[in-house]
Amino acid sequence: MARPREFDREAALQNAIGVFWSKGFAATSTDDLRKAMGIGRQSLYNTFGDKRQLYLEALRTYQRKSMSGHIARLTAPESPLDGIRDLLVGLTPEDAALRNLGCMGVGSVCEFGVTDPELVSMRQKIAPLLAGRLVGRIGEGQAKGEIDDSLDPEAAATLIQITMTGLQVAARGGADDDELHTLALFMVDRLRA
């Protein structure tokens, strides 16, 4: 009996994320995944399950990493307004190839909408994490006199999240980093006291 091929599971998962991120779920074949991951078909199934299970794991992993980056950029500066600026500007890397991928999470929403209950549930679990942090930073900014105190913090947080989605879709559509940064700064200026 042949011994199963050993491979680095995390590296294989990262490669799968790259394929799903660039192509989406439907356009990604099992062969695309197998080749990118450097594993055989049986190893893929034995380790990750079917394509859908691999996609769900890839999306969860991507979301955890991106959410961690969002929250770090938002909370690192002492100034809440600077944190919001860093959050928005940090969405769009200078590397055009990476920038043009947009966001895998936004891509999932565009591909599936609300038709997949498991994906909707994943979004409903992760979205409040950033929303809560945004509401908190907006409140801090209002208390410090940086952010317009007539703004409703929850509505402003929702607008920032919608702006994030728009920036990612524009990036996927080929907008360059100067355009995206200009739009991000425009949004931040709308919050200013």
Rank of each mutant, 00 (worst) to 15 (best):
R3S: 13
E10Y: 06
A11K: 09
G18I: 02
V19Y: 08
F20V: 06
S22W: 02
K23G: 01
A27C: 11
T30I: 08
T30H: 10
D32G: 04
L33H: 01
K35W: 11
A36T: 02
I39R: 09
G40F: 02
R41L: 15
Q42V: 12
S43W: 00
F48S: 03
Q53A: 09
L54Q: 02
L54P: 00
Y55Q: 06
Y55W: 06
Y62M: 00
Y62Q: 04
H70Q: 04
A72N: 14
R73E: 15
P77N: 06
P77E: 04
P77S: 03
L81D: 00
R85T: 10
R85F: 10
R85H: 14
A97K: 10
A97R: 10
N100Q: 01
N100C: 03
G102S: 05
M104W: 03
M104P: 13
M104F: 05
S108M: 08
V109E: 09
V109W: 10
E111K: 02
F112I: 02
F112V: 02
V114R: 14
P117V: 07
R123H: 15
Q124E: 14
K125W: 15
I126V: 12
P128Q: 01
L129R: 12
L130T: 00
V135M: 02
V135L: 01
I138F: 03
G139A: 13
E140C: 04
K144W: 09
E146K: 05
D149V: 15
L151Q: 07
D152T: 10
A157I: 01
T158G: 10
L159Q: 14
I162Y: 12
M164G: 12
R172K: 07
G174F: 04
D178G: 14
H181G: 09
L183Q: 13
L185K: 09
F186Q: 07
D189E: 12
R190Y: 10
L191D: 07
L191H: 06
R192V: 14
